[in-house]
């Protein structure tokens, strides 16, 4: 069996003349948690819907476990748990009846009644009617439905939306357990610290195009160094006028720089001006994400 759990090749979707996604080439390996990032309308949900054959590609192919998402959709969906971003449930049903129906329709996959354990973990009262649930409790129902047959691949679109911080932690724990179990997670979220906490790699999609796919650690290491240097005599601004280096703050004694390239030259220049202290800042995925999107300059850094 292929180690590639998800593979898309030239995946393109147009809604009439409107762009959905364009030429998305993506691979997610067995056992990894893959974060899929992008602002609203970037194409995250479209990509997920194509993977599950909810919508069909205009061009290109998508496969899960080596199975074509269109031609072999039924076989592949047996192995997938999906939590959509816009969750809609049968309002007139009781939660336990809904889970029974869901288990009945999708097959338990050797995990019959597992939903009870999951509901207990999320403190979900399964005797209640779905219509009477708050947004957070409805989201819990969606989370349980996605996890309940112990799928080989979990596709989660904003899984912690509407949940309180404690339940968010529980859901993240559940995601880590899936990963620890050697199963695969395709994780889309706007909460970047959450993605950073559970994912090995991320794909960043912008205006329908996948602009970067990289391991989070590599991405952070490669993209940006942020340094604050303290001097006895502050050097002139031109000192660090190097390609890939920008000054973001300056006081009487210190300069803060963002360094993408030429780090050795920056350190050498600082040494010539009797630097007293250098402080490095941890760069978060959020910094990287904002960097990709260019903070208003059109985001052409990719």
């Amino acid at each position: 069996m292929s180690d590639k759990v998800i593979e898309t090749t030239g995946l393109t979707v147009y809604y009439g003349k409107q762009r959905g996604i364009k030429d998305v080439n993506l691979t997610v390996e067995q056992g990894e948690a893959f974060g899929f990032l992008g602002p609203n309308g970037a194409g995250k949900t479209t990509t997920q819907r194509v993977l599950l054959d909810v919508i069909r590609p205009t061009a290109g192919r998508a496969a899960i476990f080596g199975l074509d998402s269109q031609a072999q959709g039924v076989q592949l969906r047996r192995r997938v748990g999906y939590l959509p971003g816009e969750l809609a449930l049968y309002k007139d049903m009781r939660i336990d009846r809904f889970f029974e129906m869901y288990e009945f329709l999708r097959g338990a996959n050797g995990a019959k009644g597992y939903w009870r354990e999951l509901a207990g973990r999320l403190d979900l009262d399964v005797g209640r009617k779905i219509a009477k649930l708050s947004r957070g409790n409805k989201q819990k129902v969606g989370v349980v439905a996605a996890f309940m047959n112990r799928p080989d691949l979990l596709i989660l679109d904003e899984p912690t939306g509407g949940l309180d911080p404690l339940v968010q932690q529980t859901v993240m724990e559940m995601v880590r357990e899936v990963k620890a179990d050697g199963r695969t997670v395709f994780f889309s979220s706007h909460i970047l610290p959450e993605v950073q906490a559970v994912c090995d790699r991320v794909g960043i999609i912008r205006q329908g195009e996948l602009i970067a796919t990289q391991g989070i650690e590599e991405l952070i290491a490669a993209r940006l160094n942020r340094l604050t240097m303290v001097f006895d005599d502050i050097p002139p601004a031109a000192t660090f006028d190097l390609p890939g280096v920008s000054e973001t703050a300056r006081t009487e004694r210190s300069i803060t720089l963002e360094v993408r390239e030429n780090l050795p030259q920056v350190l050498a220049a600082a040494a010539r001006h009797n630097v007293r202290d250098i402080e490095t800042h941890n760069v978060s995925l959020e910094d990287i994400f904002l960097d990709f999107y260019g903070k208003g300059d059109g985001g052409n850094h990719a």
Binding site: T9, V13, Y15, G60, A63, D68, Q72
Partner: peptide, 14 residues
């Protein structure tokens, strides 16, 4: 949209 034909294996884009 005009839909690409399904295929049993991943192929290059049309």
């Amino acid at each position: 949209p005009k839909v690409a034909r399904p295929h049993s294996a991943v192929q290059p884009p049309l």
